Deep mutational scan, measured.
Amino acid sequence: TEHYTFHTEEQAQRAAKKFKKQGLPVTIHEKNGKFTLQVN
């Protein structure tokens, strides 16, 4: 499991699309105004 932190939801969504294209499951969590992208 890898985690990436982004300052905006837009950045997180863009990164999520790249991972999803590779067939990886992705979840985004919002915490304290930051967005954490979790790749399993």
Rank of each mutant, 00 (worst) to 15 (best):
F6Y: 11
K34P: 00
I28R: 00
K34G: 07
K17G: 07
H3C: 15
L24T: 06
K21V: 09
K31E: 13
A15Q: 05
N40T: 12
H3K: 10
V39G: 02
Y4H: 07
I28L: 06
Q11G: 08
T8K: 04
V26M: 03
H3S: 12
T8M: 03
H7M: 11
Y4D: 04
E10M: 08
N32W: 03
A15G: 03
L37E: 02
A15Y: 07
L37A: 03
K17Q: 12
G23K: 03
T36N: 06
F35P: 02
A12P: 00
T36M: 12
R14W: 05
E9I: 15
K34F: 11
K17C: 14
F19P: 01
T27C: 12
A15W: 08
R14C: 07
N40M: 13
T5R: 05
E9G: 04
G33T: 00
E10L: 09
A16D: 01
K31Y: 12
Y4G: 06
I28K: 00
F6W: 03
F19V: 04
E9V: 12
P25D: 15
K34I: 14
E30I: 08
L37T: 02
V26Y: 06
G33D: 04
Q22H: 10
K31M: 11
A12K: 00
E10W: 09
K21M: 12
K21T: 09
V39Q: 02
Q11S: 08
T36C: 15
K31I: 14
A15K: 04
E9K: 14
K18R: 12
T8N: 06
H29I: 15
Q13I: 13
R14F: 05
E2G: 11
T5P: 05
K31D: 11
T5A: 07
T8V: 03
V39I: 12
T5H: 14
T8S: 09
R14Q: 12
T36R: 06
Q38W: 12
K31W: 12
K21P: 02
Q22L: 14
K20D: 06
Q22D: 07
K17A: 14
G33R: 01
T8E: 04
N32P: 00
E2Y: 12
A12N: 00
E30G: 06
N40Q: 10
G33E: 02
K17D: 14
K31L: 13
T1E: 10
K18P: 04
E2N: 10
Q22V: 08
Q13K: 11
I28M: 05
G33C: 06
T36I: 15
T8R: 03
H3M: 12
G33S: 02
N32T: 01
H29V: 14
H3D: 08
V39T: 05
K20W: 11
K31G: 06
L24M: 09
E30T: 06
H29S: 12
T1W: 13
K18S: 07
H7L: 13
V39K: 00
I28W: 03
H7D: 15
H3Y: 15
H7I: 08
E9Y: 15
E30S: 09
F35H: 04
H7P: 12
T8D: 06
A12R: 00
N40I: 14
K34E: 11
A12G: 00
P25S: 15
N40P: 08
H29Q: 10
L24A: 04
P25K: 15
K18Y: 15
L37R: 01
N32E: 08
F35G: 02
K34V: 12
F6M: 01
R14Y: 06
E9P: 05
K31P: 00
K34W: 11
K34A: 07
K21S: 13
T5L: 10
L24Q: 05
K17H: 09
A12I: 02
Q13Y: 08
K20G: 07
Q13H: 08
V39L: 09
K21Q: 13
L24S: 04
A12T: 01
G33M: 01
H7G: 09
R14A: 13
H7A: 14
E9D: 05
K17R: 11
Q11E: 14
V39D: 02
F19N: 01
V39Y: 05
E10S: 07
Q22Y: 10
L37H: 02
T36Q: 11
E30N: 09
T5N: 06
T36Y: 15
E2D: 11
N32Q: 04
A12M: 04
E9M: 15
K18A: 09
K31S: 11
K21L: 11
E10I: 08
E30M: 09
G23L: 03
Q22N: 07
Q22S: 07
H29L: 13
A15N: 02
G33W: 00
Q38I: 15
R14H: 08
A15S: 03
T27F: 09
L37S: 02
T1G: 11
I28Q: 01
N32M: 04
K17W: 07
K31R: 10
E10Q: 09
L24D: 03
F6D: 00
T5E: 10
E10V: 08
H29N: 08
K17P: 01
Q38D: 08
Q22G: 05
K34D: 06
L24I: 14
N32D: 13
A16V: 04
G33L: 01
F35K: 02
H3V: 12
K20T: 10
N40V: 12
Q13T: 08
H7Y: 11
N40D: 11
K20F: 09
A16M: 07
K20A: 13
L37I: 13
Q38P: 01
Q38V: 15
K34L: 10
L24C: 07
G23V: 00
Y4R: 05
I28G: 00
A12Y: 01
